[in-house]
Amino acid sequence: MKPFTYLKPHDIEAAIPAGTPPGTKYLGGGTNLVDLMREGIEQPDHLVDITGLHLDGIEELPDGSLRIGAAVRNSTLAAHPKVRKGYRVLSEALLSGASGQLRNMATVGGNLLQRTRCPYFYSDAAACNKRQPGSGCDALDGFNRSCAVLGVSDSCIAAHPSDMCVALSALDAVVHVQGPGGTREIPLTELHRLPGDTPNIENTLEAGELVTAVVLPPPLSARSTYRKVRDRASYAFALASVAAALEIEDDKVTRIRLALGGVGTKPWRAYEAERLLLGGPADEQAYRRAAEAELAAATVRAGNAFKVTLAEATIVAVLRDLSKAGAGS
């Protein structure tokens, strides 16, 4: 790990100027950043710890939306009664990620910005455009079983690793940031960038911009859930995951939210599937058609072609379960 300085400011006004110079990173729980620093992938000169900025509150706003501070720990958020009750998909997504210890450390802001687990990104002897722009991508013709099939480019097929972001995507969450130029709001679906030719640039934050909160719109009336498919029963990244909310009236889909994890280069909101499902019949055939339509845009490699079938099967299974469980309650 490269040497660095450490600063723990007590208010945002002090944090942002400290966090703006090149070579500076904000530190939350450290569960991803410290690992990446130890691997030499991240080499900041300065760390600004944001856990002293009083960003660890969860509050219901007058319009019924929920404001979650960026420094709230993943375990705290998952257990929050309002989240358990109104945003079930988010609680389940958080609890399906990492381990009890890591969830106790990891923050919401850090989870938003966590980086891929593509093995070639982690291998210092491999070519990786995300790690070293222009070096190539060894995953294209290497072990790409864990890699993405949606949103990929010739430069990068690394999958986005977050579970939480998949749920936030389905929930239409809005990310609040503050930077040298003031505050702004970014829809979660626009926070992460597709890799294109610059997979090293992963999000739309500007220099010095700090995630201060995530705001969830008022709870949906629809039932929601998160299903994660992985190699181990626990403590493994998703091969495919589905965040879904479904409401059915008179056998018709009246409300649908669908997002995918493990298969996209960013948390993947399944707009195409949603479009096909909304107003249509709530049956397995329709679910399958929608799933296939969403995955029609997939670009597969030798090792990850199965993800198309897997994602489709998981979407269908999740929607079937939600309909059986009486979606709408």
Binding site: Y120, A125, A126
Partner: peptide, 16 residues
């Protein structure tokens, strides 16, 4: 890796 001979999952998070 079949090209480089490098073990590319040398970790307890990726070797399950």
């Amino acid at each position: 890796d079949h090209r480089s001979g490098r073990i590319i999952n040398p970790s307890l998070s990726e070797y399950h």
